[in-house]
């Protein structure tokens, strides 16, 4: 039982990271109906900025904030300079924009080693190395802290989207771009803020994930977990992304431990199967709205 709890908590800790990245994916999907394949690599890039700030002597939490601010600017600039013009040209066809996010994926993942080298960077463990005993299982401070951060994120997101004018405007753009433009909502600026927020959340996920050592492949596999989480929760549901992330984390860690066929090598398999099964059985996810297209 204590062994089960041990891996449950480990899974929740990883799941909180996937949930954070999945929230980033969902923010962009809700705003633009787009799967952002570069989300993970953008997060990895910001994590290097966190590392630079920390390496220069800033306390770690402050360094993470610097990375998130960098992410916000980066996301907004990418939206303004690249995504917006291509979207405009594409006349409602999502594929050129998806192609651009794939291009960004390649650009960022191959730029990082040129800028920061190929050696893994030593990265601080958020909330330190200690652990506490609970029901016979030991839970690290890192896992507890990561879960607390996820809780904080949910509250902040809820406050922004439900309690501020900015959030209202962003929801309006997500629900109907044309009508909100007619109502005087600056649509372009809202999309920029959406991309910026998403990238900032990605930076946070990277800062929590990089304790294993920072290289340009940091977010490659977590991105798939995050996609699995968003698919499971529903691409238009931030709450679904959080639940999905935790489920994916727990399922991954438990199956890696209890199913010898999967083990540590094939850890990605359950998440991959999850994506396939959800798309086959319930494409809108657990909490998503069914897409209805008017002909």
């Amino acid at each position: 039982m204590s062994e089960f709890l041990q891996f449950l908590f480990l899974g929740l800790g990883q799941g909180a990271i996937y949930a954070t990245l999945a929230v980033a994916l969902v923010i962009i999907y809700r705003a633009t109906g787009l799967l952002n394949f570069a989300q993970g690599e953008m997060a990895m890039f910001c994590t290097f900025v966190i590392w630079m700030a920390w390496d220069a002597g800033l306390p770690f939490p402050l360094a993470v904030l610097v990375g998130m601010a960098f992410g916000f600017v980066m996301g907004a600039v990418i939206q303004l300079a690249i995504i917006a013009p291509v979207t405009k040209r594409a006349h409602g066809n999502p594929l050129p924009v998806v192609m651009v996010t794939i291009g960004l994926f390649l650009a960022l993942s191959s730029l990082a080693p040129i800028i920061w080298g190929t050696d893994a960077k030593v990265f601080p463990v958020a909330f330190g190395e200690g652990s506490i005993e609970l029901f016979g299982a030991s839970i690290t401070h890192r896992v507890l802290g990561t879960l607390a951060i996820l809780g904080l994120e949910v509250v902040v997101l809820w406050l922004i989207f439900q309690r501020t004018r900015l959030g209202l405007a962003m929801r309006a753009v997500a629900s109907n771009e044309e009508s909100s433009a007619l109502a005087g909502v600056p649509v372009g600026r809202m999309l920029m803020i959406g991309w910026g927020m998403a990238a900032a959340f990605g930076a946070l996920a990277g800062g929590l994930a990089a304790y294993v050592g920072l290289t340009n492949t940091l977010m490659l596999v977590p991105l798939i977990y995050a996609f699995a989480a968003a698919t499971l929760g529903g691409f238009d549901s931030p709450g679904g992304a959080v639940v999905g992330g935790l489920v994916v984390g727990v399922v991954t860690e438990l199956s890696a431990h209890y199913i010898p066929f999967i083990g540590n090598d094939l850890k990605l398999l359950p998440a991959f199967l999850l994506i396939l099964i959800v798309l086959l059985v319930r494409p809108q996810g657990l909490f998503g709205k069914r897409q209805v297209v008017r002909v």
Binding site: L35, I102, I275, P283
Partner: peptide, 21 residues
């Protein structure tokens, strides 16, 4: 099959998963 029954973007998602797996 699962990806193409819905919209085109999801094939990119599933194939990305395959490429990582």
């Amino acid at each position: 099959i699962p990806a193409l029954r819905i919209r085109g973007m999801y094939l990119a998602l599933v194939t990305l998963g395959l490429a990582a797996l």
